[in-house]
Design a protein around this nucleic acid. Structure first.
Lengths: 257, 257
DNA sequence: CGGGCCTTTGAACACGTTCAACCCATGTGG
DNA sequence: CCACATGGGTTGAACGTGTTCAAAGGCCCG
């Protein structure tokens, strides 16, 4: 199983000190994917100065909650999160799963949080005080530009989920889900074809607009077709090309039967 | 019928000149909702300096297209737009309907456009060159802060659509749709209970993840229940409270029958 | 070994779709 | 002026995908 590599301080540049207890972007394995992406070393250091404490969360612990005032963005260091929205009637919708290097809390900049974020496993985040980040925007234009790209990409990601929920049949939704996870693990240097589902069947179903039973049936059927291998939460993609074709909708979508 | 009021130049402050041919935020009836919201007069003027030409589009004309390089954001002056995404298989999903004072193109900041924007009727937008806007961010922090709020709200809006598409039955989706339009027209000074649907039944259905037939049946049923009045695209909400309850999910959702 | 939770599987059901016909307003050409 | 075509919308009936309800299986942890 591929666990995200733990944070390692580089002792040559970061002698044991107060600073070492905080996050260090330059030493973080995710800095090529995360907020500091593309920044010069000097600017990364300035970003390091404002990063708040790291915060550990255990499985099922909540990072923030709907209605809470907005103070920080969070960058996932390791572990996985889910974010979900709840409406007046108590119906919940998972709006995304976040992994290392991804940013949490962008929906809250308007004032307070509009969804909950919960750790799917023992995880760690970097706290990024937003007012200090705003100050830094004025001094490091590259950072601001990249921040805008990240928010923009989040908008696009959500539009893709809308496409999934509005237009795709169960089989295609599930293929999209698997292919998307695969690509994100690949971008982090993990195997694209073998990974662990960090979320429960219920979470998957909720995210995809399906019931837990449907998810279970889809897993069984994909397995029977020889497209994947499943053992509990461990998944192996046996026919990634087929799955990509299903996800793209270029391959026909057979009924659930 | 309530048509958005056309733009009126204040001749005392804006003598006929080159400047008058461009958009003027301070004179625009939407400036309390749009990008300049909350800015001081002096800062609004600075924003005015960078706004590009106004651009008129007729019904069904396209403002931008997937894949095009990103140059401008667009603020709707009057009229209505739809944005939609198309995937590899040609399936389309309308991701939103935009009206006066709303911003278009935020999904494109990452590099190029990820969806198409099309006018639903004769409309006009202000072109906002993004590189110039970025320059202004450094000088007008309030503008930057408000821009972040707008992007954040867009993320939240989309999360609400995900909730709608993932968890709600047809009746509730449709109630949410009507109540949402109602609120947005109210915020613009129009009647909250009587307005014209600027989009076709097909567009509504696509947006809500339903077929055109289902939309038609929902309209008929809501009419029969006495909740609304419908004549072609003209809609009147007769029982807004009931519709809000349906939308919130606090009221039960009867089957389509 | 027992209890609880998550998952799987089966069977009946229902919501919304699909297919089809029809309506109605508008526009066009003979 | 009427005949006809066109596109958007409505309505009906049959169908099917995914849900709901129910029961059983498997795993973890006490």
């Amino acid at each position: 199983m591929t666990q995200p590599v733990p944070f390692i301080t580089d002792p040559s540049k970061q002698p044991v000190s107060i600073q070492a207890l905080k996050a260090s972007c330059s030493a973080c394995s995710m800095h090529q994917l995360c907020l500091p992406m593309g920044l010069e070393d000097a600017d990364i250091n300035r970003l390091d100065q404002i990063i708040g404490r790291r915060r550990r969360l255990e499985k099922d612990e909540r990072l923030y909650q709907m209605g809470e005032p907005f103070r920080n963005l969070y960058a996932v260091r390791f572990g996985h999160f889910k974010t979900y929205q709840v409406n007046a009637a108590g119906e919940a919708q998972i709006t995304g799963f976040q992994m290392a290097g991804e940013l949490l809390g962008m929906d809250a900049i308007s004032g307070n949080h509009h969804c909950d974020a919960v750790a799917l496993e023992d995880s760690e985040v970097c706290e990024i005080p937003f007012t200090r980040l705003e100050e830094l925007f004025g001094e490091v234009p590259a950072l601001l530009r990249h921040f805008h790209r990240i928010m923009s990409q989040e908008i696009t990601r959500e539009q893709n989920v809308m496409l999934l929920l509005g237009n795709m049949r169960a089989e295609q939704r599930f293929a999209v889900f698997l292919v998307n996870l695969s690509a994100r693990y690949a971008a982090r240097g993990y195997s694209p074809n073998s990974f662990q589902l960090r979320m429960s069947r219920e979470d998957i179903g909720n995210y995809l607009g399906l019931t837990i039973e449907s998810v279970s049936r889809l897993l069984s059927r994909f397995k029977k077709q020889g497209w994947i291998q499943v053992d509990k939460r461990e998944v192996t993609l046996l026919d990634p090309a087929k799955l990509k074709a299903l996800a793209a909708g270029t391959d026909v979508c057979s009924p659930m039967a």
